[in-house]
């Protein structure tokens, strides 16, 4: 009678396999959910008619902030950044070094996806809130983006 109650080894494997499959399916479902939600959000914003912008400001000195040296790869990956820093969208304001040691350098229309990519690559660190300063040919730049 005692031996009858022992679960069969085959059944134990089946149970473990089922639990593992459920865990795996759960992980895949959560990942899929995030991807789907992300795509939906981007699609909704891109169809909203809003116009996100990329703005670049120049600073005299980077101060204590992290300095990131811009390379050709950055400009290839982000053509809008290229256009503002060294292209046709460079349009330094007449309000030279206005209220502080910053000045506006230029801006460009970007897509929502590009706005997010620029924010992720060059925006402030979300924990320390340190704004990286991009160095190119001896000048220091800050990138800000809008998400209307």
């Amino acid at each position: 009678m005692e031996e009858d109650r022992k679960p069969e080894p085959g059944n134990q494997f089946k149970t473990v396999g089922l639990i593992l499959a459920c865990v795996l399916a759960g992980i895949v479902a959560v990942a899929l959910g995030f991807m789907l939600a992300d795509a939906l959000i981007l699609y909704a914003y891109e169809s909203s008619g809003g116009q996100p912008m990329l703005y670049v400001m120049e600073r005299v000195e980077p101060g204590e902030n992290v300095v990131v040296r811009l390379t050709e790869k950055d400009f290839v990956d982000h053509p809008a950044l290229d256009a503002v820093i060294r292209g046709e969208e460079r349009n330094p304001s007449a309000w030279e070094w206005g209220s502080s040691d910053r000045r506006f350098i230029g801006g460009a229309n970007v897509s929502y996806a590009e706005s997010r990519a620029l924010q992720d690559a060059y925006g402030p660190d979300r924990e320390a809130w340190v704004h990286p300063h991009l160095e190119y040919e001896g000048a220091y730049y800050m990138v800000v983006t809008t998400w209307p």
Binding site: A21, C22, A25, G26, V28, A29, V30, L32, G33, F34, L36, A37, D38, L40, I41
Partner: peptide
């Protein structure tokens, strides 16, 4: 049940994430 569970989980994540964003 597993398929329904996975679909529900995906929908829940989508709704919660979009609401938070």
């Amino acid at each position: 049940a597993a398929v329904i569970g996975v679909v529900l989980l995906v929908v829940t994540v989508v709704l919660v994430y979009t609401a938070l964003v």
